[in-house]
C-alpha cells in the first residue's frame, strides 16, 4: 500500500459541481509530486482531501494508512499534526512575530516552551529567516512571508508537506528561491511533498513526478523527469 492512496475517488459539491471524478492514484513515501491543471480543474480539491478539509463523496483516500474520509470532525487534528500545509496566501497571523507564527503550530499541540524554541529556530534556519525572528509579517516581503509559512509547516516535522500553489503570488525569481527551499526539505528530511501549481516553468525545471488533472479527471501521471520530455515531444 502506498503512503498516499486514492481509490476511485469522486467529489461532487452540494451545488452539483463535480470537482473530482473516479480518481485513483498512489504516492510513495519521500516522493515529490506536482499536481497541475487549469484553474477549477480540481487540483485544490485533491489537495484539500489530503488534509481532510474536504471529504470524498465516493471512494477512499488514505494518508499514512489512515482512511481520511472516516475521521470524525473532532479527531481531524490528529491527521493535521502529521501534515504540514503551505498556502498561496501564506495565512500568517499579522499580530504575531515571525517566531510566534512558527511557534504557534507547536503551542497549539501543547508542546513545552523549552522544546519549542530550538525547533522553531531550526525551522527558521532551514528557510533562511533566522535574522527576522522579531519581525511582523507586514515587515516582510512576499517571499519571506512564504518562507515563514513553510517554516511553520515543517516545524512539527511532518511526514507530508502539502503545498497549494505556494508560488502563485510571487515573482519568478522569488518562486525559484521558494522551490529550492521546498526541494531541500524533500531531500534532507525525506518529507513527501505534494504541490499544486500552474507554473509550468517550475514543473519543467524541477523534473519531478507530475499528475495532470483536467475537469476533475486524472489525465496524466508522468514519472520523474518525463513531463517536460512529453510536452516537447
Amino acid at each position: 500500500m502506498s503512503f498516499i492512496e486514492l481509490k476511485n475517488v469522486s467529489k461532487i459539491y452540494k451545488n452539483g459541481v463535480t470537482a473530482l471524478a473516479d480518481m485513483s492514484v498512489g504516492i510513495e513515501k519521500g516522493e515529490f509530486v506536482f499536481v497541475i491543471g487549469l484553474t477549477a480543474s480540481g487540483k485544490s480539491t485533491f489537495i484539500k482531501m489530503l488534509y481532510r478539509e474536504e471529504k470524498p463523496t465516493k471512494g477512499i483516500v488514505t494518508v499514512g494508512g489512515l482512511n481520511v474520509g472516516k475521521i470524525r470532525n473532532g479527531k481531524v487534528y490528529k491527521l493535521r499534526r502529521k501534515i504540514g500545509i503551505v498556502f498561496q496566501d501564506f495565512k500568517l497571523l499579522p499580530k504575531l512575530t515571525v517566531y510566534e507564527n512558527v511557534a504557534f503550530a507547536l503551542e497549539c499541540v501543547g508542546m513545552k516552551q523549552k522544546d519549542i524554541r530550538p525547533k522553531v529556530m531550526d525551522a527558521l534556519e532551514r528557510v533562511g529567516l533566522k535574522e527576522k525572528v522579531r519581525c511582523f509579517p507586514n515587515e516582510l516581503s512576499g517571499g519571506e512571508q512564504q518562507r515563514v509559512c513553510i517554516a511553520r509547516a515543517i516545524v512539527n516535522e511532518p511526514k507530508l508537506l502539502v503545498c497549494d500553489e505556494p508560488t502563485g503570488n510571487l515573482d519568478p525569481e522569488t518562486s525559484k528561491e521558494i522551490m529550492n527551499v521546498i526541494d531541500n526539505i524533500n531531500k534532507d528530511l525525506k518529507t513527501t511533498i505534494i504541490m499544486a501549481t500552474h507554473d509550468k516553468d517550475i514543473v519543467n525545471r524541477m523534473k519531478k513526478r507530475v499528475l495532470v488533472i483536467d475537469h476533475g479527471v486524472l489525465v496524466g501521471d508522468y514519472a520523474k523527469g518525463r513531463y517536460k520530455a512529453h510536452e516537447s515531444n
Binding site: Y51, E53, G74, V76, Y77, K78, L79, R80, R81, I83, I85, K91, L93, F104, A105, C108, V109, G110, R152, N156
Partner: peptide, 17 residues
C-alpha cells in the same frame, strides 16, 4: 476567523481552539 482557521490547519484540537 483567520486565526481559528490557522489553528485548525496546524492541528489544534477543538478544545485548545
Amino acid at each position: 476567523r483567520n486565526e481559528i482557521e490557522i489553528m485548525r490547519l496546524v492541528g489544534a484540537s477543538n478544545i485548545s481552539i
